[in-house]
Design a protein around this nucleic acid. Structure first.
Lengths: 185, 185
DNA sequence: TGCACCATGTAAATAGTTACATGATTGC
DNA sequence: GCAATCATGTAACTATTTACATGGTGCA
């Protein structure tokens, strides 16, 4: 399972509280391993119980930040996990199931949904490219930065591919689905 | 949720029993929405209870095939779902988390794991290309077949990208991780 | 002082995985 | 007739999502 290890990695980069981690997840590591704040709080508590993290509890109980920090055992566990063997994750791509269904029971209104996804993927792509420019363009990179840049580039390529897929699918749908696409392309 | 709809789609293409669906999932639609036989049996029972499927129960109780068929309500539900709006699936790519961790606590032995993934993705890519040749090359395609071909091509591109990613990551690791990669490239 | 918001959580429901069980058929 | 296998399931567990709750802070 990746969430605890994603949290260990994030906390090693910079210690912080649950809510800080939640908002950092929304920006960086969460692009590749999403988690809600509920999951994060629960998992932080587990990791602390397991002796991989420690926290400075806030003075006044609830409603105040609790700062977490990785213990040596946590760093060791992260290193162990990083190199451990796992199977390929079983793929689950809902859009592909929909296209498949469209091929059988269509035409449906899948058209509009694809337009919407196209825009979402374009936005994500633009965001990643902006981050790439900001953080990795025209400079010498350390080993760690080269690896991070690689992960980001993989995200850019995935989004590029998703954009292309939506466009191609829309083209196929437009060929004979004029009910939905009233204006010619 | 996609599983019930993936099952409806599969059963509309061809009615069948739970085990037939499970083995078909291992070949076709399961490349994009994986499910175990336990999930499939549970979901088929639910769909029947909901009036979207019917089944011819075997004469002799357990251990015999139970043939499922989609009812009109099931087809309608599939069409409704196909065009319905959903958010982008939150991404979860464990390998990216590992690379990120390697960037922080590395070098670990991630090298070998990447080699293994590289081979798995190469095998999957070869399989998809073989299916493409067999089912879609050099022939006129119907609308449904063009959509299916598109899904397959998307799979081919994803695997191509995964292969490239593994190679690039291995190259970065090899630059300064000579402990693991004893021979120069 | 009261209202919006923030940080931390709890609870319940759903989805997916893993381990195991049972009856039927098939081939030796 | 017995072992291997197939088809169908049950049970328990883990992961994830969704909805809600509670205490604290800051500011109008």
């Amino acid at each position: 399972m990746s969430l605890p290890h994603a949290l260990l990695a994030a906390l090693l980069e910079r210690p912080g509280s649950g809510s800080e981690l939640a908002s950092r997840f929304d920006r960086s590591i969460g692009y590749f391993w999403h988690a809600t704040h509920q999951q994060i709080y629960r998992e932080l508590a587990r990791l602390e119980k397991a002796g991989l993290l420690e926290s400075l509890p806030p003075e006044s109980g609830r409603g105040r930040k609790r700062a977490y920090r990785v213990l040596p055992a946590g760093r060791a566990e992260l290193a162990r996990w990083t190199a451990s063997a796992v199977d390929l994750a079983p793929s689950r791509n809902e859009l592909m199931v929909r296209i498949r269904a469209e091929a059988i029971v269509g035409p449906t209104g899948l058209h509009e949904e694809l337009e919407r996804h196209l825009r979402l993927h374009e936005a994500k792509l633009a965001l990643y490219e902006q981050i790439q420019q900001r953080d990795f363009a025209n400079r010498e990179l350390t080993r760690g930065q080269r690896l991070q840049a690689l992960v980001l580039r993989s995200g850019i390529e995935s989004e590029t591919q998703a954009v292309k897929f939506c466009r191609d699918a829309l083209a196929v749908l437009a060929e004979d689905d004029e009910r939905v696409d009233t204006a010619p392309r």
